[in-house]
Amino acid sequence: MSPQSLQIRRVAGALGAEILGVDLSQDQSDETIAAIRSAFVEHQVIFFRDQSLSPERQVAFGRRFGPLNIHPYVAGMAAHPEVMEIIKEPEDKLNFGGGWHSDMSFLQHPSIGSILYAVETPTFGGDTLFASQAAAFEALTPGLQATLERLNAVHSAGREYSAKGHSAQKRKSMSVVEAEGAVGEFVHPVVKVHPETGRKALYVNPAFTMRFDGWSKKESRPLLDFLFEHCRYEGFTCRFPWRPGSVAMWDNRSVWHFALNDYPGQRRHMRRVTVDETPAAARVAAE
């Protein structure tokens, strides 16, 4: 497969593109991977249709972009711990990934991106929304942009994976452990500069951002609430309707996502691998 055979079609103004002409189950040349990565960086979330990915092939594809994460709270597949199976059975009430968020910001070195593959989808519903945090930053006034660029924020898994957290709730076909005790707090810039494009994006997260560094939770709440509302404005978003064999790959450094839970009594089965940010890349991004 040559990069020239790839077709890239934008799906929305703020972010998102569908890539045609590639079979992800096959080994890809360095040139093709570079072309996919370029589209990923430019469009922030990219989509593929009609793929047939075994867990082994999904892992192999993900590793072309960096080391893969093993989730600290959600058990992966026994033979492939890097592969998280995200399953909502017909009797489950809560889905996994509901609510706006970006993945893994509660780590010292957050993830670069996530690659989600649809194994089984409901007959209706179950779409995923994506929101560009680069577009969200660029829509702010210069004064607020300058203020936010001077701030850092504290991220932690403690709330989302506590006993009452959305992600920690019991689901029939997923094994999730609660975050107990000191799960760690990590400080990240409120405005993240993309290491490959230099484009600035807001990096706050309704699921994992606890407060601004050096501020109390009470002091932080009004500004965080404003940002959380601003960041999900419809004009910053795109929507992806799933069907079996679909793949979405999004940039956690500049994208929020929201898995809709609008398919009661139906099964939805997805597999996710997450590409970690390396310490070296983190240092470059911080400079």
Rank of each mutant, 00 (worst) to 15 (best):
A136T: 04
M1D: 12
F124V: 03
R49L: 04
Y73W: 14
A39W: 08
D276N: 15
G235T: 07
L202R: 01
R199H: 10
V11L: 12
L260K: 02
K217H: 07
V177P: 03
A12T: 11
S173C: 11
R64S: 09
L223P: 02
V154D: 00
P241R: 12
D30R: 15
S2Y: 13
G16K: 02
V284E: 13
Q4N: 11
A280T: 15
S156N: 02
P90H: 11
V74C: 03
E56R: 11
S216Y: 10
F124D: 08
G113R: 00
A146L: 15
M104V: 14
I8P: 00
E160S: 07
K192N: 14
V275M: 04
I46C: 09
T274S: 05
F124A: 06
F186I: 07
R10M: 12
T197W: 01
P67D: 10
V193L: 11
P189I: 14
E196W: 02
I8G: 02
G181Q: 06
L260S: 07
W250T: 02
I115C: 10
Q108S: 10
K200T: 13
V204A: 01
H257W: 08
H101L: 11
R49P: 10
Y233M: 13
A168D: 04
G158K: 12
R159D: 02
S216F: 12
S102W: 00
N152S: 14
H80N: 06
D276E: 14
R49Y: 10
T147E: 08
R63I: 07
L68K: 11
E219K: 13
D103S: 03
E196F: 08
L202E: 06
P189F: 08
Y161F: 15
A282T: 10
K218G: 09
R211L: 00
M270K: 09
V83G: 03
D276M: 14
T197V: 02
Q145N: 10
K192D: 06
A12D: 08
H109C: 10
A79L: 05
Y203W: 09
Y161P: 01
H188W: 01
D23H: 02
M77L: 15
N95A: 07
R253A: 04
T32M: 04
E120M: 08
F65G: 05
E196A: 15
E185Q: 04
E85M: 12
F212H: 02
V154I: 13
K170T: 11
L202W: 01
S220V: 10
E56Y: 13
S246Y: 09
A286K: 12
G16M: 05
Q28F: 02
H230Q: 08
A139N: 04
G21Q: 05
R199W: 06
R211C: 03
Y161E: 00
I70Y: 01
I115Y: 06
P3R: 15
V176R: 11
A281C: 11
A60M: 02
T128C: 04
G99S: 01
H269R: 15
P244S: 15
P206R: 05
A135I: 03
A35C: 06
L227K: 01
G113A: 05
Y263L: 03
R272L: 05
L116M: 13
H166K: 09
E91W: 09
